[in-house]
């Protein structure tokens, strides 16, 4: 009886009600969007279409009668094929290519310019695994070299390919772990840890959590035009029951980009972060003139698969024994 009274009370007091609201679609005008990321070593394509209602998951709303021309190093290119809102130009891009795009649609003219950065010059990344008393972690290190004279920006991402699973205490099902806890420290010849306290070196990083995976966006100002060492420290979540050596496979993605793309990604990251509830609404940067949303900015990417094999440390053997909970 007490339980029912509690339930009734809770129902009255803390019942929250949801209601679907009527929404007038006519009150939300569509906007033309021009997106393109000309990438070194890839075919040039431009995505041009309408924005979509926030309730709509369909994204393909082509603009009828759009005329798109890309000027590549002085040569005018027209689309060779169109698929949905993607306009392909049948041309593979190279480093240092300069591009302008002109779009005529719905009585408006939209333009934007960019260039294709050079591939990041870097040493081959290598991994050092350390199983200290505190954490198991992997240092991924490489050096960026031959930095260009112009300002350039970099993004470093690490994504885990496959991983293990863990029992979810709520659903009683096995969850596949797609990410691990990762912490990025950009080493500027400063010690990372000093008496177990995080040093000011952390403040030099610009770690912005992405929705899928962690990423680090670094501006040229941090490099100051010099070669720099980059080290990532991956804190690995380890199941203490594990007895076999565990293989972690990662993909290291290093991308050089134009200043416009850097500025764009920073704002996208802020707008879409998990903290957005506590963040003021904002417009995302775009460099397309003429009234269209979107960004036209180049990049160049290199990817490196990393295999990290954790050894089978002695302490893990001890912990694999079934430990019964001791009741005091």
């Amino acid at each position: 009886m007490k339980r029912y009274i509690f339930l009734l009370f809770a129902l009255f007091v803390f019942c929250s009600c949801e209601k679907v609201l009527e929404f007038d679609e006519g009150s939300s005008p569509r906007h033309m969007v021009l997106n393109a990321v000309p990438s070194a070593g890839e075919e040039l394509f431009v995505n041009f279409g309408y924005s979509h209602l926030f309730l709509d998951s369909n994204v393909s709303y082509p603009v009828e009668g759009a005329d798109i021309v890309v000027n590549l190093n002085g040569e005018s290119l027209h689309p060779t094929r169109v698929h949905g809102c993607n306009y392909f130009f049948g041309r593979t891009l190279n480093e240092d290519d300069v591009l302008d795009v002109h779009v005529n649609a719905c009585g408006k003219t939209m333009t934007a310019s960019t260039y294709v950065p050079r591939f990041p010059q870097m040493t081959t990344p290598f991994c050092i695994v350390d199983t200290s008393d505190v954490f198991d972690y992997c240092n991924v290190s490489f050096r960026l070299t031959d930095l260009p004279d112009r300002s350039e920006y970099y993004r470093f991402r690490i994504q885990e390919r496959d991983s293990g699973s863990r029992m979810n205490p709520w659903t009683k099902e096995l969850d596949t772990i797609d990410t691990v806890y990762t912490t990025y420290f950009l080493c500027l010849d400063m010690p990372l840890f000093d008496n177990n306290k995080l040093t000011a070196g952390l403040s030099e990083t610009e770690s912005l959590g992405g929705y899928f995976y962690e990423q680090l966006l670094a501006s040229d100002s941090l490099f100051n035009g010099e070669s720099i060492s980059v080290a990532f420290q991956l804190l690995l979540l380890v199941d203490t029951n594990e007895v076999e050596p565990f293989l972690h496979q990662y993909m290291l993605d290093v991308e050089s980009m134009t200043p416009e793309r850097y500025r764009y990604l920073k704002q996208v990251s802020t707008a879409n972060s998990l903290m957005q509830f506590f963040t003021e609404p904002s417009q995302v940067y775009g460099n397309v003139s003429g009234g269209a949303l979107g960004v036209f900015s180049g990049n160049a990417r290199r990817k490196f698969p990393l295999n990290v094999q954790l050894p089978n440390p002695p302490h893990r053997k001890a912990s694999t024994a079934k430990i019964k909970r001791v009741k005091k």
Binding site: P29, V33, V37, S51, H52, G294
Partner: peptide, 8 residues
């Protein structure tokens, strides 16, 4: 209104 994040 939504629009997609620019991608390569």
């Amino acid at each position: 209104q939504n629009y997609l994040i620019a991608s390569d």
